[in-house]
Simulated assay, not measured.
Amino acid sequence: MSLHDDAVLVLKDYGDQEELRQRYLEHLEAHSDGMWKSCGAGHITASALVVAPERGRVLLTLHRKLGIWLQMGGHCEPGDPTLAAAALREATEESGIEGLTLLSSGAPAPVRLDRHAIPAPCHWHLDVQYAALAPAGAMERISAESLELRWFAYDEVPEVADESVVRLLERTRAAL
């Protein structure tokens, strides 16, 4: 199964945000390259909010290009077998934390979707957002994509991050 096919299945199974979910599916139907950064109409991305529930904390990255606090995530790569694997790979690469696991009660499922504009040439990111659980005692390690990594208490997130991250945290906490 291709990553494109996996994305279609994941989105068909996703039971929320009906209008946005349908837009994602229409995008994939119209664009055989809709998973890739090269798609000028926008592309699917995969991200994961890294949480340490026992500490009541979330790890955010100060994004090097955008200069804002975000969850870990980014572009799918040809070697990614699934959207969930892409999100986990991105979270691991950007956080430096080994042993992350996606929040699930079976097969990993997205926590929410978020469509946002990105400066050209990317245009639109159609982000499929997961949550990743950090192992006890996890130590982060900054990557080249970040200016900084920092753990925030849940109630601090609205003070530093935009509404999409706040909504992702709310959905993640409800799923814990």
Rank of each mutant, 00 (worst) to 15 (best):
C76Q: 01
V51A: 13
V58K: 04
E54H: 12
L59H: 01
L100N: 05
R64N: 12
L66Q: 14
A52G: 00
R89N: 05
L62M: 07
T61R: 15
L83R: 02
L60M: 06
S95K: 07
P53L: 11
L102I: 05
L62T: 02
E54A: 13
R55D: 09
A86C: 03
G67N: 13
G56S: 02
E77K: 01
L100V: 04
H75K: 00
L100S: 06
G56K: 09
A85S: 15
A87Q: 12
Q71M: 12
E54Q: 12
L66E: 15
R89Y: 08
H63F: 11
E94M: 10
G96N: 08
V58L: 03
P108D: 10
S104F: 03
C76I: 01
V58R: 00
R55C: 01
R57I: 01
G73E: 01
M72V: 02
L62P: 01
A85T: 06
P108L: 06
P53Y: 11
S105E: 15
K65C: 11
G106Y: 08
S104K: 11
M72Q: 12
C76T: 11
E90T: 05
W69P: 04
G67T: 02
A107Q: 15
A91E: 11
V58E: 05
L100E: 06
S95V: 11
L100G: 03
I68V: 15
L88F: 10
E98Y: 12
L88D: 12
P108G: 05
T101Y: 05
E98F: 10
K65H: 13
A107F: 12
L83Y: 03
E90D: 14
T101L: 07
L59K: 03
W69M: 03
G79A: 10
E77R: 08
D80K: 07
E77C: 00
G99L: 06
L60N: 04
R89F: 09
S105P: 11
C76N: 09
L102T: 03
G96V: 13
G106V: 06
L103Q: 13
G99Y: 02
E98D: 14
P81I: 10
L60C: 09
E93A: 14
L103D: 12
G74W: 00
I97Q: 06
E54F: 03
S105D: 15
D80F: 07
T101G: 04
L62H: 13
G79K: 03
L103T: 09
M72E: 05
T92P: 08
A52D: 12
L62D: 03
L88S: 08
G79I: 00
S95Y: 09
A52W: 04
A87N: 12
G73L: 04
G106I: 06
T101F: 02
E94H: 10
S95G: 10
A52T: 02
A91M: 11
S95F: 07
S95T: 07
A84F: 03
Q71T: 07
G79S: 11
E93P: 04
R89L: 09
A85Q: 13
